[in-house]
Design a protein around this nucleic acid. Structure first.
Lengths: 215, 215
DNA sequence: AATATAATAGGGGAATACCCTTAAAGTACA
DNA sequence: TGTACTTTAAGGGTATTCCCCTATTATATT
């Protein structure tokens, strides 16, 4: 038997889901809650296998609830639901422990499938959500591509020096490691500052990490 | 009519796909190639709508091919295929311009669906691949969670200083901006180095960025 | 009210990074 | 076989960071 908790501030929506799940023999809706703190309280006092959790709960939102919940509970699965197919929502709640993410326009069949998949220990995502995430993955490329153009390309040796700088080595240490003179390393540092348009080491490190310059 | 190029070093596999696609009225296999450079050459001389591209081509691998191709061609779609459901493969080739990713154990029906979806301008991914990527997304959480524990928490003021350091400001500039003395900022810097276990500014920046310490 | 932590600030010194200029030798490319 | 870029290196100086130490005042926390 799957014990489900519904957490959403839209009563009508909650009731709709409730009536859908009632028809299923292996699923019981053990509770309905309408705010974040209620979710936490309920889970502490009842056995819940899965929470259908609205991402945009008022007050304490779904993401915070998720985070708080995972602090003390690892068995209850979380299937996030939302009106919005927003990349930031999806990634954030997934980073905070949700096992699945579906949209509110999801039909009865898919809802049930998602629910059972997540309870079964796997993850589930609406096709639309998947598209969004993957697009995000692909966007990175275009963005970093554009930025590439901003830098004159960094030479092989410069890249080595840069890597060692980021690993917290001093100029002297880098010189020793690469068997070259202190002055040479200084010279590389200086061209790095120029090419990357940085004022100091902090900038070097930030720009390098932000733009994945170490590949 | 969809013009497809097959790029894979396993002849038998290529022929298998070829025969599957032959049965489709709207699809023509316009070429079969077995190495990376051949792909580039072929696309330069023929009209190709979609490439079924093996990620693990010998010599110049699929990822490099993808990158090279997107340099001069934006119309040809790329559907990556691979034996391996490896997160690094998937993310890398997606970051380099592929529109879809399927596994070699994909059946005929799914292959055709993937192919038409990608040609239609949308992205397509095998369910398994989606699972892998999403798992990767979720793993980040666990990793960054663990690391959080390593730091004593950084105070409000220290965080401000840290942020300005990352923005390439010198100690003197930070002091001016925050209306405090140079020595106070030095003092904050020094506790940051301690708390974050960094040797110098480079480490400060790297650790802060890697662990999202600025939220 | 007592105790801990944070924020403030100073002196003084050593280590490191940054700047400017110059220049030779190696390497790749057309 | 030039031309451009990279890698190497130096002198000499300034700026900045880092490291000791100490110490007062605020702000939580219990």
């Amino acid at each position: 038997m799957i014990n489900v908790l519904l957490a959403d501030d839209h009563t009508m929506f909650v009731d709709g889901i409730d009536s859908i799940l009632k028809a299923e023999a292996d699923i019981t809706v053990v509770g309905k809650v309408y705010t974040g703190p209620e979710v936490i309280d309920f889970v502490k006092q009842n056995e819940v296998n899965l929470i259908l959790l609205d991402v945009n709960l008022p007050g304490m939102n779904g993401i915070e609830v998720c985070k708080a919940l995972k602090e003390f509970n690892n068995t209850t699965k979380i299937l996030a639901i939302s009106m919005f197919n927003e990349e930031s929502f999806v990634t954030e709640i997934l980073n905070n422990g949700a096992e699945g993410y579906i949209l509110k326009n999801t039909g009865r069949e898919e809802l049930l499938k998602a629910l059972r998949t997540v309870v079964g220990g796997k993850s589930y995502f609406s096709d639309d959500v998947t598209q969004t995430i993957m697009k995000g993955l692909m966007k990175q490329r275009r963005a970093s591509k554009q930025r590439e153009g901003f830098f004159p390309k960094i030479s092989r040796r410069e890249k080595e020096v840069l890597r060692l700088i980021i690993q917290e080595h001093t100029t002297q240490e880098i010189a020793n490691k690469l068997f070259i003179s202190l002055k040479t390393v200084e010279s590389h540092r200086s061209s790095l500052l120029n090419k990357m348009n940085a004022r100091n080491t902090a900038g070097l490190v930030r720009i390098a990490l932000e733009n994945n310059l170490l590949d």
